[in-house]
Design a protein around this nucleic acid. Structure first.
Length: 743
DNA sequence: TTAGGGTTAG
């Protein structure tokens, strides 16, 4: 109904109050105002403007100075469907003596706002200004704020206060604490709260189940669900959302299906969220058909339902179907755009992702948010598209967006992978909040650029900042040791991982360690490490050993490593290429052709080398001997010129590298000179300014000859060349490479 | 005299 203008509402005389003197009014115990007609008008408001009219009326009649009545106004301002926290705060500041309820309302409103920090500030003000002490209602809000902020220390302090004021058994507070600890990544502490609870309700179980799911322990979540059953606690829809999410994480289709029927058997009330969770479970478990069946039956669908289907199709590579969903959904919010962009980005189609991003900018139906930019930056990183990446950085600044940790990580990653380590460092040092991912990304960046010692220094700084390294951090730091040839340091980190940092070495860490030892020529030690591994060595481990054998020309061990590798991954082209490299280096051409025949027999083709270079925001791609580029003629003319100039300084093609698939020597030499990175270098020379570095991204490892040519070109043409290959960066300058020929 | 904790996609 339309709300009457409060100034036109004539109140019964008895409801009017004399002009108030705030300090002399004591109305706390007057029950009468609860039914005051002005207060019931508050509930009928549908916008802040109407509240303000009532506010004015209340000030005029003096009703505002009744704490109960004022608190009703605050609640409406802060928690209604049209919340205005600024206004709520203004109202609050007018109240001479807010009561505990009023303080709690404001703390609560801020806790779930975009600025939870304000909750804590209000609480501190309350401690100074209010005669009341926080009660059982205050703490869940405060803990919620600490959860949102992921402020472990603050939340722990609240936990301590709770115990001190004897609220340590309050089930609401303890449930909040479970959620809080889990949100801060302290699953163990959350679980401790859970097991020590004197009494648990269904929310306690739900909190713990959700905590396990979101903390990456879906198995434990399902275990808890089973235990819940044995203890006769009846699960509700929220429980089932968590359980379905666990099935989705585990890709456990069978159990997911069982849960579906369980929900129907036990008549657990249908809800949109539950149906969406079910859709998500089916798509993640690989059955888009089941998801589609459910989707078609759903009486109500929201943007989540549509987006889930979209992602489902995108994940199985049915991009047309995904695009179809995108085109038919009632409205495409930014999340839908994000889903499609990130689908393309994550399945190795960064160009499609960027195309969509451009469409989004033109569409004006939605505006890029942090999530969009994270995916787009990642696509830029994959392509080495630094112009666009840099543009996004400027966009972030112009929009006044705050750099959250996700965005910071993506920016650092983009600059590193596009070859601008300095810019990455500037971003890194400019942000205050650095989580483990931000630190790890920077360490990875230093590693891929060959700054092993700097990476190790940064790792120490990370310790000083009290950020706990995770498995990824260790992969990156070991990678740094490997690229810089830091054997002793690598050994130390590897040995300390579990003992000092409590991070169990995984397959990746073993692979890095084998790589470190192997590159340094310690092949025996590398083999010993493999033999001692507590898990079966994966392909990456054998690959590392094989790579080391290539460098140190150990044919026998290479053959062993290769056969192990091919047993695990029969389709691994890289293995054949590396082994044939060794044969070629050792001049065993018969074995090279034997391998080539074997590859033909099992239907394998060498992954084609591809190099890309961004010029004026456009990414140009080149394959071996590519002549599809519009400037092809000029490129080949430039290549001829380069060849001639190289010859004058006595360059001889290094044919021992990566030549195994071409037999004739002259063809070999020609093919060598048509490698994709050389085409990209030639194109870079003719299409970029003298002062600009040439930035190239290659999908495979750079071959020895291209590496040599790049060094010589950097000197002859006085140009800096930055080449990113599959494993690391090479900075060519004045005839030298940053990798010191160790790659 | 008012109330609170746990929910899916990106």
């Amino acid at each position: 109904m339309a709300i009457p203008n409060p100034s036109l509402v004539s109140l019964p005389r008895s409801h009017s109050l004399p002009t108030p003197n705030p300090n002399s009014i004591t109305l706390n115990n007057d029950r009468y105002f609860a039914n005051h007609p002005t207060l019931s008008l508050i509930d009928q408001c549908s916008e802040t403007k109407q509240l303000k009219q009532i506010h004015a009326q209340m000030l005029r009649t003096g009703l505002f100075f009744d704490p109960f009545s004022a608190s009703r106004l605050i609640t409406a301002a802060a928690l209604s469907p049209f919340p205005s926290l600024d206004y709520a705060q203004q109202v609050f500041d007018q109240i001479p003596h807010p009561n505990l309820y009023t303080w709690n309302t404001l703390i609560r409103a801020y806790a779930s706002s975009s600025n939870p920090h304000q909750s804590l500030l209000i609480f501190i003000r309350m401690l100074h200004q209010s005669p009341d002490f926080p009660d059982k209602f205050t703490f869940p809000f405060l803990i919620k704020a600490a959860s949102e902020l992921e402020e472990l220390f603050t939340g722990k302090a609240f936990h301590g206060m709770v115990i001190k004021v004897l609220l340590g058994s309050d089930v609401f507070i303890l449930n909040s604490l479970i959620h809080f600890y889990a949100k801060c990544g302290e699953l163990g502490l959350g679980y401790r709260v859970f097991v020590n609870m004197p009494r648990r309700d269904v929310v306690s179980w739900n909190s713990m189940i959700t905590a396990f799911v979101q903390g990456g322990c879906p198995e434990e979540a399902l275990e808890l669900f089973r235990e819940m059953e044995t203890q006769n606690v009846k699960p509700n829809a929220i429980t089932m959302v968590g359980v379905l999410s666990a099935c989705a994480k585990k890709s456990d289709f069978e159990f997911g299906r069982w849960v579906h029927s369980y929900i129907e058997r036990n008549r657990i009330g249908e809800s949109l969220t539950l149906s969406n969770a079910m859709l998500d479970m089916y798509t993640k478990c690989g059955s888009v058909e089941d998801a589609k069946r459910l989707f078609d039956k759903m009486p109500e669908k929201d943007i989540v339902s549509w987006t889930t289907m979209l992602v489902g199709y995108a994940k199985i590579g049915e991009y047309d179907a995904a695009q179809g969903i995108f085109d038919t959904m009632p409205n495409q919010d930014i999340a839908a755009w994000n889903a499609l962009i990130s689908a393309y980005e994550q399945c190795g189609k960064p160009k499609e992702a960027l195309k969509l991003f451009h469409e989004l900018q033109l569409s004006k139906t939605a505006k890029p948010d942090e999530v969009t930019l994270v995916s787009t930056l990642s696509a830029c990183a994959q392509l080495g598209a630094m112009d666009l990446g840099g543009w996004i950085h400027v966009y972030i600044k112009k929009q006044g967006m705050k750099l959250n940790c996700h965005l910071t990580t993506s920016l650092i990653d983009m600059y590193c992978k596009c070859g601008d380590l300095q810019k990455a460092l500037v971003v890194f040092h400019s942000v205050e909040r650095k989580d483990v991912f931000v630190w790890s990304a920077m360490i990875a960046g230093l590693a891929m650029h060959g700054h092993g010692k700097d990476a190790i220094d940064l790792f120490s700084k990370m310790q000083e900042a009290k950020v706990k390294p995770n498995a990824v951090t260790f992969t990156n730091i070991l990678c740094a040791c490997s690229h810089a040839g830091l054997v002793e340091e690598g050994r130390t980190f590897f040995n300390q991982m579990e003992l000092v940092y409590g991070v169990l070495p995984g397959i990746k860490h073993y692979a890095c360690m084998v790589d470190i030892l192997g590159r340094a020529g310690l092949l025996e030690e590398a083999v010993e490490l493999i033999e001692k591994m507590p898990m079966a060595p994966a392909a990456s481990v054998w690959g590392a050993l094989l790579g080391a054998c290539t460098i140190h020309e150990n044919v026998e061990l290479a053959e062993q490593a290769c056969s192990q590798l091919l047993e695990l991954e029969p389709g691994n082209h890289g293995a054949y290429v590396l082994l044939s490299n060794i044969y070629a280096k050792a001049g065993k051409w018969d074995r090279v052709s034997g391998l080539r025949k074997l590859m033909r027999d099992v239907g394998l083709k060498k992954e084609p080398g591809c190099s890309s270079i961004e010029v004026d925001g456009i990414v140009h791609e080149f394959l071996v001997g590519d002549n599809s580029h519009p400037s092809s003629k000029k490129i080949y003319a430039k290549l001829d010129e380069i060849a001639a100039r190289l010859e004058t300084i006595g360059y001889v093609p290094n044919k021992s590298h990566l030549l195994q698939l071409v037999e004739e020597d002259d063809v070999k030499e020609q093919a060598l000179f048509l490698h994709s990175e050389k085409l990209a270098i030639a194109f870079g020379l003719i299409s970029t300014g003298q002062s600009q570095p040439i930035r190239i991204v290659k999908n495979l490892r750079v071959c020895g000859d291209c590496h040599l040519v790049a060094k010589l070109v950097s000197k002859l043409y006085d140009r800096e060349i930055l080449l990113r290959d599959r494993y690391r960066f090479h900075h060519f300058r004045e005839g030298h490479c940053s990798c010191m020929d160790y790659w």
